[in-house]
Design a protein around this nucleic acid. Structure first.
Length: 201
DNA sequence: TCCACGATCGGCT
DNA sequence: GCCGATCGTGGAG
């Protein structure tokens, strides 16, 4: 299980957003490993008014202006965290939002992180598909907060790796969710027919 | 300083 | 389908 190399991230953001689909997002502490297959992403570009980096460098967005291959986590709506992958070259300010993953390893831990009881039968109102089918949900399940913003995805214990099968997923591209500007750009990508993709379209 | 708003979610109708 | 929670961020003053 090797992290994707820096060269994966330092390409065009739309390319990275598509190619992240089917890859495995991993967080490990040496004891437990949490992982999930990335099934939905959104691209945010430097000339894009919906992008956090659009208005230039701030304390929050500084990491986006570095080189690709780092994690960017932001806090929103007073209660949620969302995880992004910084892409392309230094100085641009581009990233890919990870919108949904299909849980693989550490499902019991993810359920606990999501604050629901009884991982055995999921009868507490939490269905398995609701565990990580949204950007704030997967961040909570993986335990990502702003403390992890800036994490090095190439050499750290949070990383992305190739799927073993190497199967190329069927990709759908459509408009992004939850933005008030640049709504026409079809920069949301997801794996067709995957149950973990977020519902809204 | 102040203040409007958000790359969301879950509960309620 | 609608609405409230809840607070960091950044643009305005």
């Amino acid at each position: 299980m090797r992290p994707l190399p820096l060269s994966f991230y330092t390409r065009r953001t739309l390319t990275v957003a598509r190619e992240l689909l089917g890859k495995i997002l991993v967080r490990t502490d040496g004891k437990r490993t949490l992982s999930g297959r990335i099934v939905e992403t959104e691209a945010y570009l430097s000339n894009d008014p919906a992008c956090h980096a659009f208005r230039g460098v701030t304390d929050r967005t500084r990491i986006m202006f570095g080189t690709g291959g780092f994690l960017y986590v932001y806090f929103t709506y007073g209660m949620h965290y969302c995880a992004n992958v910084v892409t392309n070259r230094e100085g641009l300010g581009e990233a890919v939002l990870i919108r949904a993953i299909q849980p693989l390893e550490g499902v019991d831990v993810m359920i606990a992180m999501r604050g629901k009881k009884d991982g055995a039968n999921l009868n507490g109102g939490l269905h398995l598909k609701d565990l990580t089918n949204g950007p704030a949900k997967l961040a909570q399940a993986m335990g990502f907060t702003t403390a992890h913003s800036g994490a090095d995805l190439v050499s750290g214990n949070i990383f992305i790796t190739e799927e073993k099968s190497g199967i190329r997923p069927v990709i759908v591209s459509t408009t992004r969710i939850g933005i008030s500007v640049a709504q026409e750009k079809k920069w949301r990508f997801y794996i067709k027919d995957n149950a973990w993709v977020s519902k809204k379209t």
